[in-house]
Simulated assay, not measured.
Amino acid sequence: MQIRNAEPLWRSYVRRPAAWGALVMVLAFFSACAVTSKGPSVAQLTDGRQGFVIRENPEMDAASRGEFERAVAMMNAGENDKAIELLTRVIDRSPGVTAPYINIAMAYVRTGRTELAEQHLKTALGLVPDHPVASNEYALLLRKGGRFKEAREIYEKALAGFPDYLPARRNLGILCDLYLNDPACALKQFELYSEGMPADGQVKIWIAELRMRLGW
C-alpha cells in the first residue's frame, strides 16, 4: 500500500502549488461582493485550472485587505511569524471574516503552535459552521494529533454541506484507509473524488488497490 499524502489538497490543484492556499483565500474575499446568500459557496474555477473558489460575505476595509494580501505573500515565502503579526492586526479590525483565521491557523501549524491553530480554526467555524476550507484544515490538524474520530466527524459534516469540495473527500479517504481501518469508507470517498478529479492518477491506483483488498 502506498503512503497517502494527506496535506490539504486545495493548495495543490493549480499549476503553481505554493500559491493555492493564497489563491483560495484571496478569491474568497474579492468574489464576495457577488454573493447574496449567507455563508460560503463552492464554485469551480473558470479559467482552465482545476480547483475551487470559496465565496462568502466578509467585511474588510482597504487597509486590512492590503495587509491580508501581504500576509499571504509572506506565508508563501515561508515568513510565517511575520504573517502572523499582520493577520493578527487584520483579525482585530475585521473579526467577522473567516479567511484571516484560517490563514493564521495555517501559519501557527507551520511554526508548531497547534493549540493556537486549533483556537483560530474553531473561531472560523463558529463564524461559518462547516466552512469547507476551515473544516479541511481542522480535520488535518486533528488527524495529526491522533484524534481520528473527531477528524472524521469534521470531514463528514463539511461534506454534507459542501459535497463538491473534493480536497476534503480525498483527505477523508486517506483518514479512513490509513488511520481508521475502514477500506469501504476510503473506497467510497476516493471514487467520489475521482469522479470530479479524473486526472488524479494516484487516486485511481488507490481505488484499484482497495477494490482488490475488498474483493470487489
Rank of each mutant, 00 (worst) to 15 (best):
I3D: 06
A6M: 09
Y13V: 02
R15P: 05
R16V: 15
A18H: 07
A18L: 06
W20G: 06
W20T: 03
A22K: 10
L23F: 14
L23S: 07
L23N: 08
M25S: 04
F30T: 08
F30W: 09
S31C: 15
V42A: 04
A43R: 13
Q44R: 15
G48I: 06
F52W: 13
I54C: 04
R55A: 10
E59R: 13
E59A: 13
D61N: 12
A63R: 06
S64E: 00
R65G: 13
F68L: 15
F68A: 09
A71Y: 00
A73V: 11
A73C: 06
A73H: 07
A73T: 06
M74R: 14
M74F: 12
A77N: 15
N80E: 14
N80H: 14
D81V: 14
D81I: 14
D81C: 09
K82E: 14
A83V: 06
I91Q: 02
R93P: 04
P95W: 11
T98P: 02
A99G: 02
A99H: 01
I104L: 04
A105Q: 03
A107N: 01
A107H: 00
A107P: 01
Y108P: 02
Y108Q: 10
V109I: 14
V109Q: 12
T111E: 07
R113A: 12
T114F: 00
L116W: 03
L116D: 10
H120L: 08
H120M: 09
L121H: 01
L127T: 11
L127D: 06
V128L: 08
H131I: 13
A134I: 07
S135R: 09
E137A: 04
E137P: 00
Y138E: 02
A139Q: 01
L141T: 00
R143P: 03
K144E: 12
G145F: 08
R147H: 13
K157V: 09
A160D: 12
G161L: 03
Y165C: 02
P167G: 04
A168H: 05
L175C: 06
L178Q: 10
Y179T: 01
L180M: 12
A184D: 11
A186T: 05
A186N: 01
Q189Y: 03
Y193P: 01
P198Q: 13
V203A: 03
W206N: 01
I207M: 08
R213Y: 05
